[in-house]
Amino acid sequence: MSERRRVTVRELPSYAFGPRDPMWWGVALLMCIEGTTIALLLLMYFYTRQRVDVWPTTAPARDSLYAGAATTAVLLASIVPTHLMNGAAYRGDLARIRRFMVLMTALSLAALGTRIWEFRALPFRWDTDAYGSVVWGLLTLQTTHLGLGVIENLMFVVLLYRGPVEKKHLVDVEVNGMYWYFVVGGWLPIAATIYGEALFR
């Protein structure tokens, strides 16, 4: 006969929010990877900048500033439904989750639209000079994050309306919201770098 200690896990829940959830960690690490890439590309921008006499070699036009401001405004606005959506996810309120998810997706699509405007407004190309390359690089990098976010949002809209919606999907909604915060947050230093210079010259 032997003494056995037992740890019973029968009563434990099948999902949990925030850092308790493995997927949350997965996406957090993805954000670390993408965040490092943004930081390095920004460093490349400033590295190149100190080697060139006239910078920016071709200043972004007025139109670029409007386009960049539009993207920034749309992205900042999208934070509100994201925040409300997360709140609804904690409460398990499917109707509200759906509503805010649709709103957020619409705004993310709008940001993709203004992004196209941004690209078209730039008065130089990626192959004009090193400045052109690094600005196009920054915009393209952020567009891939944006694009990934949009695809995810659309998938969630389909899931939420087609069902079946399980409780653990609430966590996925929260994690998706977190990634979206990152998309918006990652854009701000890029926007400040690309357009700030032209603004305060």
């Binding site: 490092t36 390095l40 490349m44 190149t48 060139v52 990626w126 192959d127 390359s133």
Partner: peptide, 28 residues
Amino acid sequence: PAVMLATMCLALDRLVGTHFFNSAVGGD
């Protein structure tokens, strides 16, 4: 991420004519 970024930029320099590493037009 540093090497992925580097090889991406190299590929772009080679394939679509960016100038990240081209010293003639501001790259290094």
